[in-house]
Amino acid sequence: MVNVTLTLNGEKTACTVLPDEKLLDTLRRLGRTDVKKGCGEGTCGSCSVLLNGRLVASCIVFTAAADGGEILTAAGLGTADNPHPIQSSFVKAGAVQCGFCTPGMVLAAKALLDVVPEPDVQQIKLALDGNLCRCTGYVKIIDAVQSAARTLAGKDEVPHA
């Protein structure tokens, strides 16, 4: 077993894991069920989290390799009482249907907007290329990311979800 310390949504969390345990399994065991399992092979993106600010597919990250890392999940990005503008934009734009991909999708959007504050549609599409959604056809998700970018740039009123 390996001892691992993570900063999970801002909280220091110590845990003991199997040497080949995957971060997705650890997070869900720790109660972080907003991180979803859709394929277990790194392809669908529903298990996406930000690890040290970068989007990763947690189902193919060894937990031990994330030791000392900062992990942000959708629940850490914002809450229903205090949503992040990206989350509010997803609600307003109609970008949430079944919502299974949404926690990963909002983090993919966050990872993009942290680096590219005013992305064009092509940049948004590329940034979301590892997060599959079967419900929306992505149209409203792209709307949501554009709208969130405007909000974060102070060009829009913050939408109240």
């Binding site: 392809t43 989007l55 597919a57 993919a108 990872a111 290329d129």
Partner: peptide, 12 residues
Amino acid sequence: ALCVASTPLRNQ
């Protein structure tokens, strides 16, 4: 490099 896999996987 941008053609490799997907955004999360390019980070890994």
